[in-house]
Design a protein around this nucleic acid. Sequence first.
DNA 1: ATTTTAATTGTGTTCGAGCACATTTTAACA
DNA 2: TGTTAAAATGTGCTCGAACACAATTAAAAT
Lengths: 346, 346
Amino acid sequence: MEKIYTIKDIAELAGVSKGTVDRVLHKRGKVSQDALDRVNEVLDKIDYQPNLMARSLKKTQIYSICVLLPDSQNDPYWQPCIDGINEAKKEFKSFNVKVEIFLFDATSTASFVETNKAVLNASPDAVLLVPLFHKEAIDAIETYNSKGIISSIFNNQLKSSSIKSFVGQDLFQSGRIAARLLDLLLQKGTIAIIHIDEDYENAIHMQEKEKGFRDYFDQLENRAFEIKTFKVKHPQFKTTLKEYLESNPTISGLFVTTSKAYQVAKIIAKNPERKIALVGYDLLENNLEYLNNKTIDFLIHQNPKRQAYLGTTNLIEHFIFEKEITAEKLLPIDIINTENAKDYFL
Amino acid sequence: MEKIYTIKDIAELAGVSKGTVDRVLHKRGKVSQDALDRVNEVLDKIDYQPNLMARSLKKTQIYSICVLLPDSQNDPYWQPCIDGINEAKKEFKSFNVKVEIFLFDATSTASFVETNKAVLNASPDAVLLVPLFHKEAIDAIETYNSKGIISSIFNNQLKSSSIKSFVGQDLFQSGRIAARLLDLLLQKGTIAIIHIDEDYENAIHMQEKEKGFRDYFDQLENRAFEIKTFKVKHPQFKTTLKEYLESNPTISGLFVTTSKAYQVAKIIAKNPERKIALVGYDLLENNLEYLNNKTIDFLIHQNPKRQAYLGTTNLIEHFIFEKEITAEKLLPIDIINTENAKDYFL
DNA sequence: ATTTTAATTGTGTTCGAGCACATTTTAACA
DNA sequence: TGTTAAAATGTGCTCGAACACAATTAAAAT
């Protein structure tokens, strides 16, 4: 247990006053070369760790962080994020940080833009956002950057030099995991990748998952599988998928790239004679229902709660502990079946 | 954003001095009924949150926590625990807590007892330990309790009213998960539960896993499986298991209840014509090797790092933030295959 | 050499809680 | 009623860092 040095200790060792040490440490005001050298000599010799309690007690500045994510009203996937953010808030409530949540409509680009404006209006020190809309997100992040506001993202990856941090999963690998599971479930046959609802061209996450999925089967020695892709949007969803399955009687496995596996499950559950293996995403209540009755075989957990929690704490700790912001944090990709599902809610 | 009250604020509101408020808050010294009522009235009305920075700045007392776990020299399973504890140490290094690690020999009851003595000698404020030896652990915990030292455990459950906290997994459920996976892999046939090395009668964790495993198959409607149990200790391990498998040619699945699945894998890998499904525990390097060459189909991750981390932080936060100690924290039981294994090392 | 100005260095207060000690009030007793 | 003991209450310092401001020293200008 090494000695813990204070500014006063350093001042004494260097033969100057604590004011001078302070000036050296914070590079403020003018210090003579002589004093500078003497203080630096001491600083080199010892490992000075500023007392964070004392610092944050003195500092009256309150850091402000805004978190921008989709409203869970339209998509329950986002609800756990709110919980994660609130957990982070609670954990650091004694510190000088204010965390505000801003929700936008995941179906509306305009809403995303507008909410970003509102965030800008609050002029926070940092923003954590879900960059659902590629172009608009880039714009927003550039604007934040130009105002000196730190931007971090979670859930989706998005390349931009203005982004300080990303928390999420390796979606390519995520696709591979789905592939491995269906390989195990089926051994051979035809599998369809189902992209529901979102615009495939703009949804990089779907593309990445598909790439990983196909990559797995491409690398398999025996070409026992045939992989198809099926894209469908909501309004005609039910009939279209039904027809698709009927016209492709060889399909014995489905990989749903979004959290909407329950919608697919609802359809295939109506025809229990035809056993179709089904792998999807996220622990929504609807999904769990079909997981428990074994219509869905596996769910892949994207851990939105932890993503939001880590994204938030990463920023908080940067401000109050001067921690470096972790540029990329990839969370484990959890495989969920009937038996371990409920453990993930604690 | 509600106002943050200080002791001074409360004193003014109640019309007393901050000394009196302090006495009320800490129930020390004598306070007149009148003053007590007035302060409590204010306290009821507002939500006073003591400033933890100020508190820990003032308090010079250093809390001491000892963590007692098996040496990873004999069993690499324990290495991640050390990492988890060090992570906790690092995170809270600015605070007045000292965390010391004590290692014992997992194969020696005497070593466990002795290490507990050493811990007692250090007279810490709390102890976090792995209660590997049932009787001796109970004894140690009782001793700690009698000296006013808080005891928490992780990895193994152990019932005692003197234990303040347990971090671990639901082992019964863990067995069920293994069962579900083998069900999926095989659909039908004979499966053997393999208990390696440890003394089954004293290893409750093995018993619980077996119970859960059997429970799953008992609840299955179609009795498509036959479940056997096989116990073996190290010296004769190799030949015994080989003979066992040869004399039971119908066995097509194995469930190894410890982290030693690689030892089993080594044997069955020698006879690749006979395909045997294998599910085991823990992300040891040896296990991962056989997972990657698909001799092991699934590993169940017991997350020792996180267990140790949470056990430690739980105690630290109790001391510095006066948080309640969480009595039981059950971690999710992660299912690992070739594709998601490496994600768990971040 | 003396004044003025700039550069450097030191001192003292603050943040909020905790606690020792000083002071005041109340109760007890002669 | 006065004295003393006991109970209650208030005051002031401390923790370490930050920062404003005062004090000192050095350099420049007269």
